[in-house]
Amino acid sequence: MTELSNPQPVAPPRNQWLDVWDQFKTHRGALWGGIIFVIIIAGVYLGPLIWRVDPQFLPQGRDFINLRDMRPIWVGLFDSSAKVSWAHPLGTDNLGRDTLARLMMGGRVSIAVGLTAMLLALFLGTLVGVVAGYVRKMDGPLMRLTDLFLALPLLPLILVASLLFREPLSASFGPEGGVFILIVVLIGITSWMPTARIVRGDVLALKEREFVLAAQSIGTSGSKLIMRHVLPNVLSPIMVSATLGIASAIITESALSFLGFGFPPDFPTWGRLLNDGVDRVVSFPERSILPGIMISLTVLSVNYLGDGLRDALDPRIRGR
């Protein structure tokens, strides 16, 4: 019998997250998307610490006339008669509220809605997907449930629900808090279905793989198996639907605010700012364009980020 050669590894194994990072770096779009997303988040959350102007403040008396309808500072470059001031670099709206401060506050709300709704949808989608894929008995009922939810028209459903639950919620959580919970929950429970389907498909395929069989043969319990072997392998499709979910949640919130069913009218979100600017889009295009750019930038950067993460997290693509 020849001696079993069992060479010990000389160097500690390379952390797999470093591999992920190496792969991620090669995707330029994702890198830029990530940088821009971080800048936007920092801007809306840390910005108010530097730019200490109250977005809800309405100037009174004479100031009101002087401070309303200001243009962004760059308009002064080509139109010397425009009303501009460094005190309001992005101008003010027709009631004299500072646009920069409102954009930051609107961004906080929109991004918070996007992230929370995405987390909720992800949790529900993964739960349903894994259970349906792993437990054969549950597959049929859960997938029919998914079909049912897919068939629901989203916007009318949200409009009806906001009609029914708005008042009890705002009574217990305040007008803004109530609407926040309502919108997040509604977007969350109406957008988990794609995730559930993708996850179920992947789980079905994984279940038949040898390493799962091996794990089962040494007596790994079902829950351990899912946590240790199945979930890490479906992480990449989950990531993709997560990023897409943020984008669609922000857009749905914007659509709701645009229709007047979201937050109270004086509470800025990007969608509402865009909506409020529509009346005067010819004279003050920046009032619609700026929030529009912010929504587009966020959605685009998140999508690119997700694209890069998918590539980086998939061990089969990684290193190619």
Partner: peptide
């Protein structure tokens, strides 16, 4: 009307009345 709401909310807040705004299609 939404401009009016915002202004009146501000004025009422100065006399110690809190206002929640709501607009309906």
């Amino acid at each position: 009307r939404q401009d009016f709401q915002a202004l009146i909310k501000q004025w009422w807040s100065e006399i110690g009345i809190e206002t929640e705004l709501r607009n309906i299609n």
